[in-house]
Amino acid sequence: MAEARLTNAPGLAERARRIRLHALRMGEVQGQGYIAQALGIADVLSVAYFHAMRYRAEEPSWEGRDRFLLSIGHYAIALYAALAEAGIIPLSELETYGGDDSRLPMSGMAACTPGMEITGGSLGQGLTVAIGMGLGLKRKGSAASVYTLLSDGELNEGATWEAAMSATHWKLDNLIALVDVNQMQADGRSSSVLGFEPLEEKWRAFGWHAQRVDGNDIPSLVAAFDAARAATVPGPRVIICDTRMARGVPFLEAREKSHFLRVEPHEWAEAIAIVEGARA
């Protein structure tokens, strides 16, 4: 199969909408979960999988693929939705999410799912693994990039900053970190749990090519991914994505406690109807 690089058909907004829809249907099976994060990150995943990354849907471990590391393992629901939309896993399998013996566990596991490069979830590890993969790809003379999805809460973990220093030290221009700033972590608002601003300046101080964009605005994301890939700086790149939890479902966006969202049975249908109605 040809490399998937579908810039036009169907549009990125439509891909994002379908990622949201897949995620909501998975969430409905469990009745609760990290659905707000999935709705929030859908646009970023759409641009990553349908604009930026090179991969072969039918050959998930194709050597030349760009690697996508889900450091924040609990976002697995979002990545499964994107992997299904990309044809890497069958859409019909999504209903097994979180079930016994499913290939789609609640927190991502590399051994379970095609396209899941690492077992994330112990936060702070993804970027350290990305360093090794970036170094390894360079050793092999590979042109592939390593994308790593982190979150604002995860930046609490010190190992991320060990890796941030290291990426610059090794001039890893094949690394692109994506930081989802959705201002929510387990115990509440991220900036009140542990202040992390000014974020762009922090990454720059660590030597990274840093951009900060509205992570729910597809044209901005496309421009940021393009700029990150095209930059001629001899080092790593980060795109800080400000996103809105539960984006696309207004009554869920309004919830204050959204880290692990509880949704009533009738509300799933309502949420799905909203996203279905938003067809581009």
Partner: peptide, 16 residues
């Protein structure tokens, strides 16, 4: 940075 060392070693191993 021992945590980085082990994570990076894992990444290297993933790349063969």
């Amino acid at each position: 940075a021992e945590q980085l060392l082990m994570g990076a070693a894992a990444g290297m191993a993933r790349e063969g």
